[in-house]
C-alpha cells in the first residue's frame, strides 16, 4: 500500500492503494466514479477510456503509480452537466442502446476532436477503432462525432 495524490476532474484527491492498481479500479472502487467502465482489462475494448492530460488512454492498463501529476479526466468530469459538444451530439443522435460502452466512446471521440476539429471518416475510424460497441451503434457514433465537430 502506498499513498498517492491524484488530480481527477480538477480535484486533488488522496488514495492509499497498491501501486500496481490500475487507475480504472481506483476510480471505480475508491473514488466512486463508476462512469469509467470495465470491459476487458487488457486495453482491447475501450470501455475504460479516460483522458490523461487530454489524451485518450485505457485506464485498465494504467497503474496508479504511473499517473504522477498528470491530470485525469473521466466522463463525470468531461463537462459540468453533459454540455460538452460530444455529449450533446450523442443526445441529439440518441446514440446509446445498452449504453455501457458509450462513456468510453465519448472519451475517445472528445480526445480526437481536441486535436482534430474536423476529422475525416478514416480519421474517425482510426481514432475510434479501439472502442468496441457490441450493440452496433457505430454509424450513429460517427454521425454524432461529425455533428460535434461542427459545433
Amino acid at each position: 500500500m502506498e499513498q498517492f495524490l491524484l488530480n481527477v476532474n480538477g480535484k486533488n484527491l488522496e488514495v492509499n492503494v497498491d501501486p500496481n492498481t490500475p487507475i480504472l479500479w481506483v476510480l471505480r472502487d475508491h473514488l466512486n466514479l463508476v462512469g469509467t467502465k470495465y470491459g476487458c482489462g487488457i486495453a482491447q475494448c475501450g470501455a475504460c477510456t479516460i483522458h490523461l492530460n487530454g489524451a485518450a488512454v485505457r485506464s485498465c492498463q494504467l497503474p496508479i503509480s504511473s499517473i504522477g501529476k498528470n491530470k485525469v479526466t473521466t466522463i463525470e468530469g468531461l463537462s459540468e452537466n453533459g454540455e460538452h459538444p460530444v455529449q450533446k451530439a450523442w443526445l441529439e443522435h440518441d446514440v446509446p442502446q445498452c449504453g455501457y460502452c458509450q462513456s468510453g466512446q465519448i472519451m475517445s471521440a472528445s480526445a480526437l476532436l481536441e486535436t482534430n476539429t474536423n476529422p475525416s471518416d478514416e480519421e474517425i475510424d482510426s481514432a475510434m477503432n479501439g472502442n468496441i460497441c457490441r450493440c452496433g451503434t457505430y454509424t450513429r457514433i460517427k454521425a454524432a462525432i461529425k455533428t460535434a465537430s461542427k459545433s
Partner: peptide, 23 residues
C-alpha cells in the same frame, strides 16, 4: 413519434446505472 432514450442523459454523463456500478 420519436422520443429520446429516458436514460440518455445519465448514460452520456457516466451516472451509475448498471449492475457493475451498484454499491
Amino acid at each position: 413519434t420519436s422520443r429520446k432514450n429516458v436514460d440518455g442523459a445519465k448514460i452520456i454523463t457516466g451516472q451509475p446505472l448498471y449492475g457493475l456500478d451498484y454499491s
